[in-house]
């Protein structure tokens, strides 16, 4: 077998394997999107309906606008407020993520430059995050009710900030470690204070890393369910909580509505991912190549 032929075969095999993998990975997303456009009789139809026929926007109108549009079955879901939840989710996740990345980067700078945290301490920091939330959520809800944080935006922001801080420190530290000391020292001898150096030189240099960290933590807080479920009641619901409401005992499984909501939850993250994809590629590959 000639070399070029071998190379061609290996390319074909590679693409075949990747294609299969892509189908497996993308199918649930496709199914979610397809279901959101299906009329209710097709949600659980057998054999499955792969392409909505006829496609309908009824699910979206019902979920997001509260329109009472029904086809053959009646689903009386009118108490939902997904737009309010969307607003809550945006406020909570973006604030908590911003705080976590900001303070994470500052702590990481200290850990990297002043050797404040040993390897063991850094690992312990990450281990904090490995504690299953279910273990702490009961005592936490007691604390929260005692200090009046239960069912508040601030309460959820605080807990998300604290729980994602270890990730932020870990991820940003690996980026800061890569920034040459001499660049910082150059700024210092030119008259910059330490804070000025951090904000004018170090953080802009790890911009891509910060963006990657931001998205990573945003995904975690955006989709967090358990803490939100326990620590909020009726005033402050987030989108994942909203999603679970469509699976109640009275309404049954309203897949079409749920899918329409799920699309709404997923799309913002996808848009953000697309907008910052240049930074992501750089951020996620940062530090992979040792000099």
């Amino acid at each position: 077998m000639t070399k070029s032929r071998r190379r061609r075969i290996s390319t074909v095999v590679r693409y075949a394997v990747l294609s299969v993998w892509a189908v497996i990975a993308f199918f649930p997303i496709y199914w979610m999107i397809a279901t959101s456009f299906k009329i209710d009789t097709q949600w659980f139809a057998w054999p499955p309906v792969y392409i909505p026929n006829p496609p309908t926007l009824a699910n979206y109108r019902n979920v997001w606008l509260g329109a009472e549009e029904y086809t053959s079955t009646q689903y009386a879901i009118s108490s939902q407020t997904p737009l309010v939840s969307l607003k809550n989710s945006v406020i909570i996740s973006f604030t908590a993520t911003f705080l976590a990345v900001f303070f994470g980067a500052i702590i990481a700078y200290g850990a990297s430059r002043y050797r404040l945290l040993s390897e063991a301490r850094m690992f312990q920091l990450l281990m904090l995050r490995m504690i299953p939330p279910i273990v702490v959520v009961a005592p936490l809800s007691l604390y929260y009710s005692a200090i009046g944080l239960l069912d508040t935006l601030f309460g959820l922001i605080l807990i998300y900030f604290i729980t994602s801080l270890p990730y932020a420190v870990w991820m940003t530290k690996s980026f800061i470690d890569e920034v040459p000391r001499e660049v910082e020292q150059a700024a210092e001898i030119l008259g910059a204070s330490r804070w000025r150096t951090v904000f004018e030189v170090v953080l802009p240099l790890i911009r891509s890393g910060l963006v990657a960290t931001f998205l990573f933590i945003l995904i975690l807080t955006w989709s967090e369910y358990l803490l939100a479920l326990i620590l909020s009641k009726t005033n402050v619901t987030t989108l994942p909580i909203e999603l679970s409401k469509y699976q109640g005992t009275t309404e049954g499984r309203v897949y079409g509505r749920q899918a329409a909501l799920a699309v709404g939850i997923t799309v913002p993250l996808m848009i953000i991912g697309l907008v910052i994809r240049k930074h992501l590629a750089r951020g996620f590959s940062f530090g992979m190549v040792r000099r």
Partner: peptide, 18 residues
Amino acid sequence: PRDRGLGMVFQSHALFPH
């Protein structure tokens, strides 16, 4: 360092790449 009135040129140039 900033209060010593010195200027330094580094081996790696240490320019701010951004």
